[in-house]
Simulated scan of single mutants.
Amino acid sequence: MESQDPAVVEAVKASGESNLERATAKAKETFDQLMNVSLNIAVTGKTGSGKSSFVNALRGLNDDDDEAAPTGVIETTEEVIMYERPEMPNVKIWDLPGIGSPNFKANKYLKDVKFDTYDFFIILNSERFMQNDIMLAKEVRKRKKNFYFVRSKIDSDIFAEQRKRGFDEKEVLSRIRGDCQKNLKELGDPKVFLISSFELDKYDFEMLQNTLVEELPIHKKSALLQAWPVCSAECLEKKIRFFERQIWAVCLASAGIAIIPVPGLSAACDASMVSLFFTRCFYAFGLDDRSLSRLSEKVNKPLQEYRAKSKFIEAFLEKIMSKPHACASFTALTISELLLSLFPGVGSVAAAGLSFATTQYLLRQGLSEMANIARKIRKEAELDAVL
């Protein structure tokens, strides 16, 4: 091993490579995927099925937010429209016109919407799936891409059924699912996900996420796990574990230690990489203003005050998020002073730069602090207790 620093040895082992040079090369590739791998999600289906609301939900927006996809009781999507998550421009959600709408006939739909652009298709319907949906799924399957049937507006169905005597929510959901699958039997036995775009913590939204994670290529899973809205405690924990597994790559990639021939290693940290890592954690855990405001409205509780209890997050917002243009020019000393002041007991940092072990420690502590605040906010919101 090129260095006897235990932290470096640990990171090389985590990489699965046999030496430092190979581990560093893999770290740079892993970090690049973490930040830049593209994911293109196509949302399509019957006119009026709630596609735009679903797109907004995936982006963490309410339908009446300024940046939201337009919604309404009539067809509002007349052309293919691409929406980004502002904090993750590499993840794109495409709101496609309803199949069979005047300008997009079923027999040439996939050509008109540029099929090859998308990684997978989500086919929505707010009622029962019809022949156009089946025809679309067959064409997608023929071209060797995945599709997922989503039965939308489940909250409206449940609300309507609650007025009836002997209402049983499980029975209603089972009946809806069975009816959908009956109409899709010629496709085999495709899964049908029952979803409300306004209540992501209910029904099958998390099951859809789990299925996508299982079936996407490894390099695409990274983008999905970061971008998918936090819909449950299990979803949050999955995100936390994902970022914990990336720490070795951030450390090796940011330190650039493969080209440093000094045994024992004391390397300047590329602070822009560290700040990018924490920025992704911040948004993925739903700690940003928009996510917290939406959650506060849902549970009718002020939740941003819990974020303010974290000195690390407050300093992070002040020093990094408020000056995104300056991130790339941060020096190792600047970020070390910020983080080490919040996590005392690490030891002093030399002016020449951060040691690899210190970088690793700071990443772990910063991630842990963000994760714990996200858990506390979710606990205060009492969402999981209700479920």
Results as ranks from 00 to 15, higher is better:
residue 286 G to C: 14
residue 157 D to F: 13
residue 387 L to E: 02
residue 117 T to D: 08
residue 5 D to A: 06
residue 339 L to Y: 09
residue 251 C to E: 07
residue 248 W to S: 01
residue 225 L to C: 00
residue 372 N to P: 06
residue 164 K to C: 06
residue 59 R to D: 07
residue 283 Y to P: 05
residue 329 S to Y: 07
residue 35 M to G: 00
residue 70 P to V: 02
residue 183 N to W: 03
residue 57 A to G: 04
residue 46 K to V: 14
residue 271 A to M: 13
residue 175 R to K: 14
residue 148 Y to W: 08
residue 283 Y to R: 02
residue 251 C to M: 01
residue 32 D to A: 14
residue 273 M to L: 15
residue 145 K to T: 12
residue 297 E to I: 05
residue 306 Y to C: 10
residue 105 K to F: 07
residue 3 S to M: 08
residue 53 S to L: 09
residue 316 F to T: 00
residue 244 E to F: 12
residue 97 P to T: 03
residue 26 K to V: 06
residue 248 W to G: 01
residue 45 G to N: 02
residue 320 I to H: 04
residue 226 Q to M: 09
residue 114 K to W: 04
residue 261 P to R: 15
residue 20 L to N: 02
residue 35 M to V: 13
residue 137 A to F: 07
residue 265 L to S: 14
residue 58 L to V: 03
residue 81 I to F: 03
residue 361 Y to I: 11
residue 312 F to H: 00
residue 159 F to W: 05
residue 73 V to T: 15
residue 78 E to V: 06
residue 236 L to S: 05
residue 156 S to K: 11
residue 374 A to I: 07
residue 116 D to R: 10
residue 43 V to K: 05
residue 62 N to L: 11
residue 356 F to V: 08
residue 128 R to N: 13
residue 222 S to G: 12
residue 140 V to T: 14
residue 182 K to Y: 13
residue 101 S to C: 10
residue 255 A to K: 12
residue 104 F to S: 10
residue 201 D to M: 09
residue 10 E to K: 02
residue 308 A to E: 14
residue 262 V to L: 03
residue 26 K to E: 04
residue 376 K to N: 15
residue 4 Q to A: 15
residue 119 D to Q: 07
residue 279 T to L: 15
residue 24 T to G: 03
residue 255 A to S: 14
residue 97 P to L: 06
residue 126 S to R: 09
residue 151 R to D: 06
residue 130 M to L: 12
residue 109 Y to H: 06
residue 135 M to S: 14
residue 12 V to H: 02
residue 343 F to A: 13
residue 333 L to G: 03
residue 73 V to S: 09
residue 90 N to R: 10
residue 245 R to L: 10
residue 176 I to Y: 01
residue 309 K to D: 11
residue 29 E to I: 10
residue 346 V to L: 13
residue 60 G to R: 04
residue 256 G to S: 05
residue 100 G to L: 02
residue 357 A to F: 11
